[in-house]
């Protein structure tokens, strides 16, 4: 059944999950539409629990959630049929070869045996384990196991790929490769991605939309694409003297300036203004500069602001 793009990929309605009496997810409400959605948050924020709940591994205490329009309380089996899941921790059968395990997982997702075998070879080549596909998984390195996990997650051609910390334990080269693979899968346009990570750089490289969790609360839902589109640039300057004169000149160049006293000026640079012009103004006015720092509105700043914000408003 084709997925209606007007429908949210994931819809959370007062979703509450408890382990015993301890609440883990506290009434989450969100509608996520992005092709690639990032789940961010510090350790213990409830990221993995949210994923497990969407997959039906954690019982829902209150509220509900929908995955591509299917209710997790009523249509669990259906949801699992179009979801591919790459768990965070180890997940392999040590005495099976990579191709046998990936094939079996494909068959469990409903692929006929011959098609599953063909797909197993195909995805193992795709993730870069082609040469090692007949080796037992118990002999694989950490990086190879991560790739094997990715292979089993995509073998059945899922419509939603859930990746829980996919770059865990990978060296820089393997991490870059893993991110490139995920970006390629996303670019195919046939798969939505839900990426759970505490590595901001990974999420920034892959995701369009980011949800930030903290202590079981959803504290921010950010459209990274929109953020990137407005892509605000900031300049913080501290001068020894002539702050007002400098601020006036910068306002003339289209900057939005605010002065906080003691020669400190914060500016939002307009689109098209090059830093070269700022330096030229400084030279022209002969303003003695004490400090100058340039920054963009990065995910890191969004994340830190969300963490610091009491109510999570951005």
């Amino acid at each position: 059944m084709p997925f209606d793009s007007a429908q949210p990929v994931i819809e959370l309605s007062r979703l509450t999950v408890r382990f015993g009496t301890r609440p883990i997810l506290k009434g989450l409400d969100a509608r996520l539409y992005g092709t690639s959605i990032g789940l961010l948050g510090p350790n213990g924020a409830g990221k993995s629990t949210l994923i497990h709940t969407l997959l039906g591994m954690c019982p829902v205490a209150e509220g509900t959630a929908k995955v591509m329009g299917h209710d997790i309380r009523k249509e669990q089996r259906r949801i699992r049929s179009f979801v591919g899941y790459m768990p965070e921790g180890d997940a392999y059968i040590a005495d099976m070869s990579a191709v046998a395990m990936v094939r079996m997982m494909g068959e469990l997702s409903g692929l006929p045996p011959e098609a599953a075998l063909e797909r197993a070879h195909e995805v193992l080549f795709y993730v870069g384990l082609g040469e090692a596909r007949y080796r037992r998984l118990g002999t694989f390195s950490q990086g190879m196991r991560q790739l094997a996990k990715l292979a089993q997650a995509v073998v059945h051609g899922p419509r939603l790929l859930i990746l829980d910390e996919p770059t865990n334990g990978l060296d820089p080269a393997a991490r870059t490769r893993m991110i490139r693979l995920i970006q390629q899968i996303r670019s195919s346009g046939k798969v939505h991605i839900l990426l759970c990570s505490h590595l901001l750089a990974d999420v920034e490289q892959i995701c369009q939309e980011v949800v930030i969790l903290k202590d079981g609360w959803l504290i921010a839902d950010v459209d990274l694409d929109a953020q990137r589109r407005c892509d605000r640039r900031f300049l913080d300057v501290e001068v020894w003297d002539g702050a007002d004169q400098f601020a006036g000149a910068m306002a003339g160049l289209g900057c939005t300036c605010s002065s906080s006293g003691q020669g400190r000026i914060s500016m939002i640079l307009p689109e098209g203004l090059h830093l070269q012009q700022v330096y030229q103004t400084i030279v022209d006015l002969d303003v003695p500069i004490r400090r100058l720092s340039y920054r963009t509105d990065s995910l890191e700043q969004i994340f830190l602001r969300a963490m610091e914000s009491a109510d999570g408003g951005l």
């Binding site: 049929s81 899941y85 921790g89 997982m105 469990l108 997702s109």
Partner: peptide, 15 residues
């Protein structure tokens, strides 16, 4: 063997 290395999650995340 399925429990030893967390493979059960792979089975049970499928239909």
């Amino acid at each position: 063997p399925d429990l030893a290395n967390g493979a059960l999650a792979l089975y049970l995340s499928r239909p």
